[in-house]
């Protein structure tokens, strides 16, 4: 059986690097959303960014922290996404 995947926290998406005064361009007909800074500037900001401490050290919050997927993937837990099959779970428990 394979080990459960860890989606992992501390994603650090580009939204984290926007600063006051940056020009932002929204173009709904063109389907774009951009911050008008150079790629180099984005990389510089990312390099000095420090991730905040995880919010949870126990319980369900930790489960969410480690396994929730991003919005475009539905925010399910990564270990639940697989359709059930022989290797991933049984529909019938053993009765002993």
């Amino acid at each position: 059986m394979r080990a459960p995947r860890r989606t992992g926290f501390l994603v650090g998406g580009p939204l984290a690097f926007v600063r006051d005064g940056d020009l932002i361009a929204l173009d709904v007909p063109g389907r774009t959303i951009d911050v008008l800074i150079t790629d180099e500037e984005m990389s510089r900001r990312k390099a000095v960014w420090t991730a905040p401490a995880p919010k949870f050290e126990r319980g369900y919050g930790v489960l969410n922290q480690l396994h929730v997927t991003q919005a475009n993937k539905g925010c399910d837990f990564d270990f639940l996404e697989e359709p059930m099959g022989a290797a991933t779970g049984s529909k019938i428990p053993e009765i002993h």
Binding site: V18, R31, I33
Partner: peptide
């Protein structure tokens, strides 16, 4: 509408 760009590489 689904948007992409350098603010949302995986979509918004």
């Amino acid at each position: 509408a689904v948007l992409h760009g350098n603010l949302a590489p995986d979509g918004a």
